[in-house]
Nucleic acid binder design. Structure first.
Lengths: 108, 108
DNA sequence: CATTTGGTTAGCCATATAGCTTAGTATATC
DNA sequence: GATATACTAAGCTATATGGCTAACCAAATG
């Protein structure tokens, strides 16, 4: 989870992910839009792979990078759970407020 | 976006967020379950605040921390967009495969 | 077989991160 | 007014991160 969110906390890496939703590609092609030396770029790919967001395979002298199926699932699940917990609490608070309001008008 | 994902890339901070979905709390109380010196813990709160995940206000000598409404929205939106792009591409590929298959059986 | 091309390895540098301690400051509480 | 409480500020350390260059390896290509 740490590595997943950390992998997404960098614009270069998010850019690579966005590119990969349109299909796999070799490293050279992925690197092209990012003004940086190849070894530096490679580290980002490594980090994406460590996070499980991406898989790579060697074809000839090229390394092809592809998005992992359900790559985002753990992150989405966690976020969804938090949002739900938060909204349920707001609902309970609202419910409580409504009931208190009803009580006060009963008194009148 | 960078700071948002980075803020979530740490178990202490995710723990704080999870706790806050059940309601706001002062720093001391939030810090209690995390075995670490207060100043160290404070830095995590600062990082959550910088990411816009959390707001704080001073009440007497306490600092109350609360989850920001729609705190996760940007992260969720980005993830959702990627997932959608990815799935649309898979659909197109499947569609293409089905059509190719149909063509080949037509030939037979 | 010489030369590109696409990665890869190794190692360096600057900054950021996550932790610490020690020493304040401001608000309660006795 | 003295003391305790809840931060807050300053400054230190170790490791991680994001970038670089230089040199190397292996698979094309001429």
């Amino acid at each position: 989870m740490d590595t997943l969110f950390a992998a997404l906390a960098d614009p270069t890496r998010r850019g690579v992910v966005e590119r990969l939703t349109r299909g796999e590609a070799p490293i050279k092609e992925l690197a092209a839009p990012h003004d940086m030396a190849l070894p530096s770029f490679m580290k980002h790919i490594d980090r994406l792979e460590d996070a499980g967001l991406v898989t790579t395979r060697k074809v000839g002298r090229q390394r092809i990078v592809a998005l992992t199926p359900d790559a985002f699932a753990p992150a989405e699940t966690w976020l969804e759970r938090q949002k739900r917990a938060w909204e349920e609490r707001l609902d309970r608070l609202e419910d409580l407020a409504v009931r208190l309001e009803a009580d006060s008008t009963d008194d009148a």
